[in-house]
């Protein structure tokens, strides 16, 4: 397999990246770890004439308890045992991404912005040409939802749900300077399923910031997939919060792997704050989340099963939530 020709850019500072990104708007992709982008390029999926490699931008590297550089590799987070102890739910998610070889190159930012997936999209040019191209690449129709005017490909990152429940913020550099926004606001539910974020031309995801959590916060990420390695999530459920049998002090729940974007369910969890977290409350929450999500048939496991598992995985995530040693 081969990559079509492109021009490779290797900026070394964030400012340089933003300048390049502004200049090349619409004609480039960022290259982070490459483990998602390059397979797509080899299959000639939306390949661009320019690649801006972020490899050499020092500021994007590194991590601390409260900041993850966008180019920090997943394997480096995984290897940091202290970080693992303090961020249990996030560590669950990181350790379940793809394979060790993918995590060795794959990055935090790359996983947050991983392309959506679909049986009818993640195929070779030949395969797609034989069926007729779809609206996500080279065509204008959807093979999953007939008459669809938007794309239903599935959001397949593991980190996003786990970070959403930690109230993570993303730091974005753009032509008009730096800004911070909640991770949830990075994803744009108003999009067509193809454009999925609120990143503007010239924007660069610089880092993820983790605000301090409440004392005694617990968290868990649970991933549904056929095999314990390789597979993208068929469902990912993240919970985080501080609770005991008396009272919920804080609570977040997010789901990924079933729709075009990861979703947080604050309208269901906020009313639980101040109330006791009874098994019945967890069940009601699980049932309601399950009722709301709408997977389509574009991954390995059938959508009715994936949906049914939402409830099970929510209940289990609560049951298995572990406390991080530093709040």
């Amino acid at each position: 397999m081969h990559l079509d020709p492109f021009e490779l850019h290797r900026p070394t500072t964030v400012d340089e990246v933003v300048r390049l990104a502004t200049e090349l708007a619409g004609r480039f992709d960022y290259l982070a770890g490459g483990t998602d982008l390059l397979p797509n390029y080899k299959m000639h999926l939306n390949a661009k004439p320019h690649l801006v490699a972020l490899e050499d931008v020092r500021e994007l590297r590194g991590h601390s308890d409260s900041r993850l550089g966008a180019m920090e590799r997943l394997a480096d987070l995984e290897a940091d045992r202290t970080f693992g102890r303090t961020h249990p739910g996030l560590t669950d998610a990181i350790g379940e991404v793809a394979t060790p070889l993918v995590r060795s190159s794959g990055t935090v930012g790359g996983n947050l912005l991983v392309d959506t997936r679909c049986f009818f999209f993640n195929q070779s040019y030949f395969w797609r040409s034989s069926l007729g191209f779809c609206l996500k690449a080279d065509g204008d129709r959807c093979h999953v939802v007939p008459q669809a005017e938007r794309c239903y490909a599935t959001f397949s990152g593991d980190l996003a749900p786990a970070l959403l429940v930690l109230d993570a913020e993303v730091e974005v550099a753009g032509p008009s300077g730096r800004r911070r926004l909640p991770l949830g606001a990075l994803y744009d539910p108003g999009g067509d399923g193809i454009r999925r974020t609120r990143l503007a031309p010239g924007d660069l995801l610089v880092a993820v910031h983790l605000p301090p959590g409440p004392p005694g916060r617990r968290a868990r990420y649970k991933k549904l997939r056929v095999r314990p390695s390789y597979d993208f999530p068929e469902l990912g459920v993240a919970v985080a919060g501080a609770w005991d049998s008396e009272r919920v002090r804080s609570l977040r729940l997010a789901v990924g792997g079933v729709e075009t974007l990861p979703r947080r369910f604050d309208d269901l969890t906020d009313p639980l704050v101040g109330t006791p977290l009874t098994p019945e409350a967890v069940n009601r929450l699980a049932d309601e989340v399950q009722r709301r999500v709408r997977p389509v048939h574009n991954t390995f496991l059938p959508p009715d099963y994936r949906r049914r598992m939402v409830g099970v995985y929510v209940r289990r995530a609560f049951a298995e939530a572990r406390e991080g040693s530093a709040g």
């Binding site: 049986f119 069926l131 056929v226 095999r227 390695s229 390995f300």
Partner: peptide, 22 residues
């Protein structure tokens, strides 16, 4: 896996060979 005559999973990602843990 097929949809009519079309093979949906011609890849080692979507053809699920068991892992060591299995």
């Amino acid at each position: 896996n097929y949809r009519s005559s079309r093979l949906l999973n011609p890849s080692l990602l979507e053809y699920k060979i068991p892992m060591p843990q299995q």
